[in-house]
Structure formats: C-alpha cells, structure tokens
Design a binder for these strands. Structure first.
Lengths: 346, 346
DNA sequence: TTGTAGGCGTTATCAT
DNA sequence: ATGATAACGCCTACAA
C-alpha cells in the first residue's frame, strides 16, 4: 500500500524503530530528541547510539502536529539588495549547529503577496518568523505576533511589546553621512529617498529614519536652507528619471545621499552618462555598504550596518522568543561610515 | 490543555469544522480540497462556501503526514549572484496561482551544508526540489532523485533519466561571445573561468561548458594559438589576484571573457585601478546579463540566458514530475549576446 | 526514571 | 456520489 502519493518515498525509520532497537519506550526516545527532562545518561546514550546506527531523522511534519517543526520562516521582499545576503549569512551562521532550519520566502514587493506568504508559513507550522522590512505594520503586525513568535528587522517599533526588532540606528547613520560630507566642505547636500508606498508612520520605516537623521544633521550644521529630500519609488525607471532630473536641474546638489546603495549605483550611472565626474561635480553616498561599493568603478562611500551581526541577532532573539520569552527586546547596532572615493574631495 | 507548545497558537479551523458547517463528511471536504474525483457540483459549491466563510486553511504539516505538503524546496548556493533573483522571479510567477509554495534554503558554498539542507527539506516532506547549480552530482544525485522529484538547473545532465534539467546552452553562449569579440577584431581573447572545486565532469558544469564553447569557437576562427583559460576560485580575493596577474602580465589579453558577470565586474574594477581603459586597452564580457550590466560605470556586454524563463520551466517541470511524469525532460534555452560598450571598439 | 495510550489534521481505502 | 474510519509519526498527560 502506497501512502506517499508518488510511490517512491523510501521507508522511514521512525521513533518506534529507534525505541525497539534501543530497547526503550517511544516516550524515552522523544525526550532524548527534544532534550527534555527525565532521562538518565545511560538511556540517552543508548538512544543516541540507535538513532545514529539506524540513521534516524525526525519527520518535521509529524513533529509539527504536536510540537515544534524546528523551521523558521524568513520573508524577503526585495531579494535584489545584496544587503540581504549578509543578513542571511548571519541567520544561517547562528543556526548552523542547532536543529532549526531557516527557510526563505520571497514576496516581491506587494503587500498582498507578503500576507499570503506569511499565512502560508503559518500553515506550515513554522515555529517563528523573521520579517525583513515587511509591509505589514501597526496593529495587524501586533496581532500576528500574538499568534506566532516574530522578529522584525528593518522596521523601527521601539515600543512594540509583542515582537522583537533588530535594526541599525538609521537616524545616526544618516547624521554621520551628513557630517562627513560637511567636513569635506560640501554644503548643498541633497537626499534621494524612497517613496512611501507602504502604510505606517515615517518614523517606523528605515528610509524615514534616515530622512529624519539627514534633516536633523543639516539643521544642526546650519545647512537648513539646503535641506532637499526627493523621493523615488523602488523601480529602476523611476530612480533613473528622478536622478536625471536632479542632476540636470538648475542647481544641482554638490552631494547626494542615497537611502540605499542600489540607488547610489544608479545615480553614479546617470552621472557617468551625463559626463559628470565623481566626486568633483557630484559626491555620492549610499547605505548598506554592500560588496559592490568596493568595486573601483563605484568606489562608493556607504554606511555599514553589519548585516551579518543583525542576522545573528535575529536568529538569537527569535529562538529566545520561541523558548518562551515574553518581554520584547529591541536590538540596535551602531552604524559607521566607510569612506571611499565617491565623497572625498581631492 | 495547551498542545501548541507556546500557548498562543490560535484555534484552527479544521476540515471537520468545515464538514460540520457544510453538512457533509470530512472525506467530501478532503476531496474538494484536492480536487479529486467523485464530488458533485452541488456538494463542491457547498463546501467551498463553508471554507470561505470559516476562513479555513489546510494545515500543511498534517497534509504532509498522508499526502502532499504543497511545498517546493529551492536550494541556492550563492545568493550573491543576481541571476538567481531572476530565476526566483520565474519560479514565483509560475506558482502564483497554485497551491504550491516555494521555499528557499541557502547552502553557502560547501557541499556538506548542501547535503544537510537537502536532507532537511526531505524531513519537511517537501513535494519536490529545485536544485540550483548543486554540488551534488552523478550517482548520488540520481539516487536522491529516486526518492523525491527533482529539477536541476545549472548542471548539464542530458542523459539523466531520474530527474529533469533546465539550462541555457552555455556552450553556444560562449561561442557567441567569442564570435562577437572576433568580429570586433580582437584576437588575443582569454577566458577567466571558475576553479572546479566540485566533483563531476567538466561537461556537466556550467563553466565547463562555457570553456568548451570558448575553445571550440577559438579553434574554429583560427585563433587556436590564443586559447588561454585561467581559473579562479569563487572568492573575491582570488578573483582579484588572478585578474591583476592577468592584466599586469607580459602579454595582456585584448579581450577577457569572464564566466559570470560578477567576475567581470571585478575585472573592470581591477582594470580601472590599473588605469586601463575599457574597451580600448581591454574588452570585457560577462555572462548572465544581470541588471548591473546596464549601469553606465559597468556597461558590460553579457550573455542573456533569460533567468525568468528558466525559473518558469523549473516550476512547470517539477509539478509535472510530482504529478507522476516518469520520463526525464531536459529544457535548454538559447542564449543571446547583449552588446554594450565594454566590448565595442570605437 | 520509564512506559502506555490517546490525539494532532489530513488522506485514502473501503463500504454504502 | 458520499461517508465512516484507519492510518501517518510524533508528543505528552498520566500511570507505574
């Protein structure tokens, strides 16, 4: 009788086989598996040995019906941004030697798809979710967090009690950029930010915080009259059009702070096409310090938020939550500016 | 009594609730769910209505114990390569309106981790796997494919009967590049390829096929004496060192064909640092036609293998296999060269 | 400390 | 065409 649906699944070694082999009960095996209380060292050793010998592997689907699946969901909206690579590296590294397996779902940019993805992950009984820069926010997010342990990265909710957050200090990062540019004696420093297509307060979004930091630093340095924030949506075409418009306009900024590296690279591209020289005609700064900044053709000054550290924290916090921690923790790393040629006057 | 382990999982609407609400048996509901035979339109309508009203969602973990989980695993080794973004876009698009959910696992470059990831996906009862440029190959891969439906992309196994493959014609792509460069009257055309750290024949790997195409085209054009294949491992440092060595050496090639865009961008970087002008001192060509090629500072000629199409095919073939197709299919798209400034003599 | 006996939500077999 | 019910592999209250 074939119950697998496709007639080729190999016969599984079950917890019962292990129990029989080790001469103990299934409950004992289950306890060893979960590292639960109430097992003697001798019994544990016997069971471990049998599991090894039989090549036993617990079936996540079955575990999920009563306990945990040891699966963590990660939702990404924009896989293009190499920053997420660093983040994932951190998450993977943190979970390397644990039973937990991170699985990534991609929700290309629309919030309906994101919602579907999250539902889908809950259908799969995942133990917890890491939401990366999610559209979801506010009350619906808090509601969700009451149903499943959640860590949010790339969204500032310092007062949330239902879930943890992991971020870099975006406001500070932007301030550091402005200060650096001012030190290089640039004054007309503009910012190219992201159009808010998502709900939620400006203060919660990453680019919103960066805008705030930018404004504050400009004001603090007596450059209030030069404050200039332009926003573009997350599409190639719109970024190009907006950049071109800014660089061809009557009073071109001396320096342009872009909310993320990806946008800065587009700006460099447009500037190159217009025959502008960087940084003499235009200084450019990005955010995220992705590996593309290092390429000589970009040589892009950027803000490092150590994505790998953030990823590690996400994993750590999520597992703590799964294990029962109730109070929220909000982790924030200090960013630093990595200066390269794109913003250094010669 | 709390069975969920963390006391906050909401009460689920089960198939039984739907059955009660619709006034039918659970078996009937299950059939509607699976779109199985033997349900009248009237019954189906009633059940659908109840499911809708109660907000019923099937629990994948439970389905996995008897039937399918409607989860497809995708393994990626190198998430850095933006080509995989296109691939994923295709996979996601193809599955958008189906019950299937693709979930990505990342196995950063070591084959032990890849093996663990695959096991882990099988523990989670995934219905099938899409392996992207896997380390796994040969007999072990065939063995695996006998246990679970598999589609492999980025590995050439035209004779495999146990699984499907999806590729672009890498050999042809390389030939097209060489022909293009020869037309631009470059003769000393070298190739920067990938060091084989993985088992398996040269003919199975993507870069191996590209080398073959390169050699053949060079020979066919009477440039045999200029054939020069240099290999570097997949690390930034090694690529840089190798590129620098090639460009500083006694007889620098006129044109350099890089096995993937990422490497080509590094080459452009090194060339820029050395003060070489592209394409006058050195023409550069990449492979994959990722979005970075379009940036003016790169303006990189590359080979387009339409990743999104490949992704679509992966999803299509995998589902066919899951539904029972036994014979292997091997899909191959024709690549095309996208010429940009990096290889065009002025 | 160890074992026994349901039960989790779904599928699929076998009656009706 | 529809329904009753025995699995699937694991977890856990409870008994010993």
């Amino acid at each position: 009788m074939d119950l697998s649906g496709n007639g080729r699944r190999a016969q599984r070694v079950t917890i019962r086989d292990v129990a029989r082999d080790a001469g103990v009960s299934v409950a004992a095996v289950s306890k060893v598996l979960r590292e639960a209380y109430g097992v003697s060292d001798a019994l544990r050793a016997k069971v471990r040995d049998s599991m090894e010998r039989l090549g036993y592997r617990p079936l996540a689907a079955a575990r999920g019906m009563r306990g945990q699946t040891y699966t963590l969901g990660v939702t990404l909206s924009d896989i293009r941004n190499p920053f997420f690579t660093d983040l994932m590296a951190g998450i993977n590294a943190a979970l390397e030697r644990t039973q937990y397996q991170p699985l990534v779902g991609i929700s290309h940019s629309t919030s309906a798809i994101e919602a579907g993805l999250i539902e889908s992950m809950m259908d799969r009984q995942m133990d917890g979710l890491i939401l990366v820069a999610p559209h979801l926010t506010g009350a619906p997010l808090a509601d969700l967090a009451r149903r499943i342990p959640i860590v949010v990265v790339g969204q500032h909710q310092p007062n949330a009690t239902e879930f943890d957050t992991v971020n870099n200090d975006d406001e500070l990062g932007a301030e550091l950029v402005v200060r650096h540019l001012a030190e290089q004696s640039f004054a007309r420093i503009a910012m190219l930010s992201l159009a808010f297509d998502r709900a939620g307060s400006v203060e919660a979004t990453v680019n919103g915080r960066r805008e705030t930091g930018y404004r504050r630093a400009m004001a603090g340095l007596g450059l209030k009259q030069h404050i200039n924030v332009v926003r573009a949506a997350q599409t190639l075409r719109e970024i190009q059009t907006t950049a071109r418009h800014m660089l061809e306009g009557p009073n071109r900024p001396e320096a342009l702070f872009c909310w993320t590296d990806f946008v800065a690279l587009e700006v460099i591209s447009v500037a190159t096409e217009l025959g502008l020289s960087i940084p003499d005609d235009l200084a450019v700064v990005g955010y995220d310090n992705t590996f593309l900044c290092d390429l000589a053709q970009n040589d892009l000054t950027s803000v490092d938020q150590s994505g790998e550290t953030l990823g590690l924290q996400c994993a750590r916090l999520l597992i703590e939550r799964i294990k029962g921690r109730g109070e929220a923790q909000h982790f924030m790393v200090k960013p630093r500016v990595v200066v390269r040629a794109s913003s250094q006057k010669r």
